[in-house]
């Protein structure tokens, strides 16, 4: 049954899990630092230098981005009433990435701006792209007032294909310097995280995550269907617009700063539902915690696997997420037929 021991105490379990992974991420790498020393904060100057300028901002970025991706997955699943909805699969991320690409390649002044201004501009472009694709998906997948899985996934395929060719076109017309910036960014990487960027990302994502948590009761109403949610007093049309804006902002910001990192939004909420139940009051905060842990873990793994080089973290999450998606899809087909 659902109320097993661990289902009663989701937050302590997930918080401890995140702390352990975070400690692992801080101490392991091409240069390892003893974790006992980190815990007792008796580290030497070199250790402190590495922690403060490289590992800590990177860890915080992974936590923020992981939480935001997982929560936006959970929001989209409530919005579309479907466990297969995910910003990556449905093309929201790649739609956002096209607009960042356009900004990098076609904007001659962007390179001369300070780093924080560039960051905000990239976020704005990605947000615009994400809103546009969300709206497109809604239009394409609505069938007789219902969102059908088939239309949803087909819309995703079409949008991903379109974005792929647009990105290809951008690489074709870009010069050497832009091409480097573009490829480096598109790989999906947390390696470049600096304190300024962490501050910008946190300033946008933290309020959004709080908002999502506060709306979890209304998200539960959406599970009944739009008509029924209205009968229970929820202004569904307004709420949907707000949700789309939150998802688009979350995805937009993460794409702008870390490129394409897929499948977190698909895997994490599903795991949370299996472990702790489908009530969104639990699913939203738990997805944030587990998403943060998962991305931190994946990023550390990507750093450790090919020392001194590192793999793009998007590659690691896709390696995990691809088979997971197939399993989920097969399960879904079996249940509906």
């Amino acid at each position: 049954m659902k109320h097993t021991f661990y289902a009663r105490i989701p937050y302590p379990i997930l918080t401890v899990f995140l702390l352990i992974i975070a400690l692992f991420a801080l101490t392991q790498g091409a240069y390892s630092i003893s974790w006992q020393k980190v815990l007792l904060s008796s580290i030497n100057d070199i250790d402190r230098q590495i922690l403060m300028t490289v590992r800590l901002p990177r860890l915080l970025m992974a936590i923020l981005v992981g939480a935001a991706l997982a929560v936006s997955g959970a929001l989209m699943q409530a919005l579309f009433r479907n466990p297969l909805a995910d910003p990556g699969l449905l093309g929201v991320s790649s739609g956002a990435s096209v607009f960042v690409g356009i900004l990098i390649v076609l904007n001659p002044i962007a390179g001369n701006l300070p780093l924080w201004a560039q960051s905000y501009m990239q976020s704005a472009a990605a947000f615009f792209g994400a809103v546009l694709t969300c709206w497109l998906i809604f239009q394409l997948s609505k069938h007789k007032g219902q969102v059908s899985v088939l239309h949803l996934l087909l819309a995703g395929i079409a949008i991903n294909a379109l974005s792929g060719s647009a990105t290809g076109l951008l690489t074709y017309v870009s010069n050497d310097e832009q091409l480097r910036a573009l490829t480096f960014w598109a790989m999906g990487n947390l390696g470049g995280a600096r304190w300024e960027q962490v501050a910008v990302v946190a300033s946008i994502l933290l309020p959004l995550l709080c908002y999502a948590w506060r709306q979890s009761k209304n998200l539960n109403l959406l599970l009944l269907g739009e008509e029924e949610a209205r009968y229970l007093g929820l202004d569904v049309e307004k709420f949907k617009v707000k949700l789309i804006a939150v998802v688009a902002l979350c995805v937009g910001v993460t794409v702008a700063f870390t490129g394409l990192i897929g499948f977190i939004g698909l895997m994490v909420p599903h795991l949370v539902r299996m472990l702790f139940g489908a009530d969104n009051r639990i699913v939203i905060p738990c997805s944030a915690l587990l998403g943060a842990s998962l991305l931190t873990g994946a990023d550390t793994f990507a750093r450790l696997l090919v020392i001194p080089a590192e793999l793009p973290v998007g590659l690691v999450t896709s390696l995990l997420g691809g088979p997971f998606f197939l399993w989920l899809l097969l399960k879904n087909i079996r249940e509906t037929s």
Partner: peptide, 19 residues
């Protein structure tokens, strides 16, 4: 009414208390 996720009976009924 089809529910897309595995809610428990008391969770479904408690949605009626939303107002």
């Amino acid at each position: 009414i089809h529910m897309p996720f595995a809610l428990t009976v008391s969770e479904v009924v408690s949605l009626g208390l939303a107002p």
